[in-house]
Structure formats: C-alpha cells, structure tokens
Amino acid sequence: MSQPFPSYYTLWHKAGSYALKFTAFAVLFFLIVPIIVIIPLSFNAEPYFTFTKGMVTFEPSAYSMRWYDAIVTNPNWLLAIKNSFIIGFFATIVATTLGTMAAVGLSSQRMPYKRLIMALLLSPMIVPLIIIAAGMFFFYSKFGFAGTYTGLIIAHAALGVPFVIITVTATLSGFDRSLYFAGLSMGASPLKTFFDVVVPLIRPGVISGAMFAFVTSFDEVVLVLFLAGPGQRTIPRQMFSGLREQINPTILAVATLLIMVSVAFLITLEFLRRRSERLRGLESPH
C-alpha cells in the first residue's frame, strides 16, 4: 500500500486506504502485544504479574532471574519438562509413521471410500477435546492405560495424525503417482519403491507434519488433565494448575521459554517450506 495512489483515487479513497492501514496495524498490535508483554514481566523481581514502578524506570534491581531459577530448582517443573518431551517425541513417531503411510495410500486414486476415511481420520482435529478426554478417560481406564505414559502417547498420537495427513497429502498433491506404480510394476517391492521414490519427495511434508504433531502434543492439556497421573504431568498441565491455583511469575518464565521455542519452530517451518518449494520446482521437469 506504499505505492503512490492511482490518479483516479479521490480524497475519500486515500482516507479509506489510511484507515485500512491503521486498522491492519491495530489488529497486528492486538495479535502480538499480549505475547511480547509476557517477556519483560518474566524478569520481574517482585511476585506480581504486572510492571512495577522500578521496571518502568528500568532500575536494574527491579529485574531478576529468580523465576527462571524457580523452574530449575523445582522438581515438579523439571519432571513436567521431561514428560512433555518424552510424550511428545513418542506421540510424534507414532503419528508420523502411521499418518504418512495412510496419506500415501489415501492419495492414490484407487483408494476406496477415500472421502469417508479422510473425514474419519481428520476428525480428531474437529471433535472438542473435552469429548475426546471424557471418552478416553472411560475407555482407557478399563485397560489400565489411564495414568500411564502409553495412554498419553496413544492419545496424543491420535491428535497428531490429522496434521501429518494434511501436510503429507499436500506434498503429494503435485506428485506423479505413476512413478510409484511404475516402480511397483517393475518388480520392486512396495517398501523399496516407497523408500526410493516416494520418501524423498514427501520428506518436507513429513517433517512439517511431524512438527505439527509434536507441537500438538507439546501444547495439549485437556487430555493430560483427564488421563495423566501425578507422575505424567506435562508443561501445559503444570501451567494450567499454576494458573488455577497459585498465579506466580514462574509461569511467565516458562511462557517466555515456550515463546522462544515457537520462534524456533516458525523459523524451521519457513525454511522447510522454502526448501520444499525449491525441490518441487526442480523436480517438475522429470
């Protein structure tokens, strides 16, 4: 919108254009400010959720790392961090493996009941978590899965599956399927064909699907609230109970660390997207 206005623009057009720009920036402000505000607050020397006088005047004594120390010295937070990674990691493996295979199968035009199966496999993304959590609580308790790592890994893997399917299907949408079936009909085993032909093409989709699956698990709290025992508390679970019971800036310190993680994810994802575009651009002449 920074280009000069075309000659047919009237004064009102220009005013409208500025109004649009103003609105857009206001909305961007609304989106980003709550997230930015947390960061300085996490260095508060006082146990409050707001800026103290000293913070506003940048007195060094008003700032401290005490809430970061509080994370490192609290066994519950350390356990939560460890659990988040364990559960996230295994849930990602399960979701990515099964999801990728299914996405390859589903992108075949010969796949029967494709639309129905697709809708079913994507539904964990749409069904409210509270319903999934209640159902899993009833069902998993019967098998002794409630309160175990296995139960949570299965639960989170089911939530991650739709993301893997979506991202892998997207990378496959431009893929010439005859390549795969050519491989098959030339007598190569389906598995070998799969690894030699399909995997290199869908790798960016698989990686970003895996990242989505990981983040989904890493950020998930409702299922954890219903299914986890005290030994399986995760970071979001710990934040949830902290926010409900004792609001304390340690949560802000954790939040700041999580924002850093999101920034890292965002950068990786952008990098993958560019690479995928480049790869597909190179791949097309074949």
């Binding site: 947390i38 950020d219 970071i235 999580l258 924002i259 994810f265």
Partner: peptide, 9 residues
C-alpha cells in the same frame, strides 16, 4: 507467531 505459540502461554 501467536498461531504457533502455546495456548497456555
């Protein structure tokens, strides 16, 4: 960035 930031955050 907000989209990728944890819901709890």
């Amino acid at each position: 960035l907000p989209f990728w930031t944890s819901l709890l955050v």
